[in-house]
Amino acid sequence: MSTSIDFLLWVRGPGFDIALFIFVVGVLIRLLEVLILGRKADYSEPRGAELGAGLLTLVTRTAPEGGSFKRSPFTVVGGYIWHIGFLISLFLFVPHIELIDSVLGIRWPGIASNLVDAIAAVTIVTLVAMLFSRLTHPVKRFLSGPEDYLTWVVTFLPMLTGYLAYHRMIDPYPLVLGLHILSVELLMVLFPFTKLMHAFTFIIARWYNGAMAGRRGVQS
């Protein structure tokens, strides 16, 4: 009569397996093909230590430099809101913690679901605003290609379907829950092949940036 349960069973069974496999293997390949390249030893006499400066930049680069904040406040504030909102929705929503626990065996306390709901709503609105900005800001529009819009879509869909599922806006429930899981699987599958990789590689990038500047005595 209804195949929504079959659909849900597929997405959380074989579908999840496929997505998880591609995600884990893909991310590892991407990280290793970066890291194994390495860099040559630097023979110049260092003015400062690389390690501390690199680690510091890893943290400090999270806060925007004052002048750039003034020049692109929307990108900075919007970027903050949706990244934080996305991470809260992903990691502090109780059912998600249950899922992570079942996959990785680690858990932490969540926050009230209705709070996550409000944050998710703000995140969704912000993501729409970010898309609008990408379509209208001369630089972002100029830089953007299909991949930029594709990654927006696969980031947006889990938020949207999650919101719809939480509020049961699509019937039957297994269908909307399945769509939510499927949208996350889409995100996981595309992750290693797109700029979404920055979620991992920014750590390497910031470290190199900070370390190389730190060697010259500048905290970047």
Binding site: T75, D148, M197, H198, T201, F202
Partner: peptide, 12 residues
């Protein structure tokens, strides 16, 4: 490689 992998075209 890490820099190119990380760019999100934010335009900043």
């Amino acid at each position: 490689a890490s820099f190119f992998s990380s760019c999100v075209n934010c335009g900043m």
